[in-house]
């Protein structure tokens, strides 16, 4: 066994211990913190798997937004036992445990049985990279080869926002999402919220920009920008916008909208829907990514802010 393997086993063991903690610990709050820690460590595994794009995504989601989302919910739902189902009996739990172990075992067996050498699309993706002029193959897959999935996924994000907004009380429809955050404008939190966002903006835009040639991309950059916005909101330095505001709506559809328009232009004038003329591919993809980053940042921020709670009157 090589030293690398030992490290990998240690890493997997730590991650799994956190996973077990997350599942078995009685208090919800501890489980939530455990899961956030788990998410951060999974980013290490992704680096180890040489999938830096995914590692960035995990770090941006697991570290920032996911933690805020889950921890905020855990804190707010502290005495929410009324919503719990009945606790399953011992027998049922034992049965569930047995079945889960069995499923995991089957899965493990199947993983061990995967063919060797493994079939792969990596050569095909590299060979066709000329069509876009981007040298990050993951971005190529997301934006060109499987652009349809990416576009549909952006619509999923939009539907999530609509779903969250649909939970507003009728009186608050069109108002501002979430509670107004109060914080001491001269406190530590506000201090951090004054210093960090500009730095985060530069980093977020860098992650977006570098995504065309190196790991990174619209989602990761957008998630960082959203985190910065959220920080300012939580510190009371900014407020969530009115959801009825036209410009908010526009930003929220800018990404998928531009994607669709470029796709339709390809249908009308080019080779196919969602095809890019090779000469224009890079600027077009970058344009879509920039619009998507804006959309993602706004969407993620608003997803975390929650349903409109405050009516349109100030």
């Amino acid at each position: 066994m090589s030293i690398e393997t030992v490290i990998e086993i240690v890493l997997a063991a730590v991650v799994l211990t956190l996973g077990v903690w997350t599942i078995v610990v009685p208090e919800t709050f501890s489980a939530t913190v455990g899961f956030v820690a788990y998410g951060l460590l999974v980013a290490l595994i992704w680096v180890r798997l040489d999938a830096a794009d995914v590692a960035l995504t995990e770090a941006a989601i697991g570290g920032g937004l996911g933690g805020v989302l889950l921890l905020g919910a855990a804190a707010r739902l502290r005495d929410a036992d009324m919503m719990a189902d009945a606790r399953p009996g011992k027998l049922l739990r034992a049965g569930a445990a047995a079945l889960s172990v069995l499923t995991a075992a089957v899965l493990a067996g199947v993983v061990l049985l995967l063919p060797d050498p493994a079939p792969t699309l990596a050569p095909a993706a590299v060979a066709n990279a000329w069509a876009t002029g981007l040298s990050n193959p993951v971005t190529n897959v997301l934006m060109a080869f499987r652009a349809m999935d990416t576009m549909l996924e952006k619509v999923v994000l939009l539907l999530a926002i609509i779903g969250v907004w649909s939970l507003a009380p009728d009186s608050a429809w069109g108002g501002r999402p979430g509670p107004r955050h109060q914080a001491d404008p001269r406190g530590v939190l506000a201090f951090l919220a004054r210093l960090l966002p500009p730095v985060g903006i530069v980093i977020g835009i860098y992650i977006l920009w570098t995504g065309s040639d190196h790991p990174g991309g619209a989602f990761q950059g957008g998630a960082i920008l959203a985190s910065m916005w959220l920080l300012a909101i939580m510190a009371g330095l900014a407020d969530t916008p009115l959801v009825s505001h036209r410009s908010v709506r526009f930003i929220l559809v800018a990404g998928p909208g531009l994607f669709l328009l470029v796709g339709l232009a390809g249908l009308l004038f080019g080779a196919a829907f969602l095809s890019y003329p090779p000469a224009l591919a890079k600027p077009l993809i970058l344009g879509i990514e920039i619009a998507m980053t804006l959309t993602i940042a706004a969407t993620l921020g608003l997803l975390l802010a929650g349903a409109p709670e405050r009516s349109t009157e100030p």
């Binding site: 559809v253 669709l260 796709g263 339709l264 249908l267 829907f273």
Partner: peptide, 28 residues
């Protein structure tokens, strides 16, 4: 290869999506 009337398949997805986006922007 794409068949001649294949573009209709794209439209069958794209049109309602365009509707979703448009309706969302234009508002209530």
């Amino acid at each position: 290869a794409t068949t001649p009337s294949g573009f209709l398949l794209v439209l069958s997805i794209a049109i309602p999506i365009a509707g979703v986006l448009l309706a969302f922007v234009l508002g209530d």
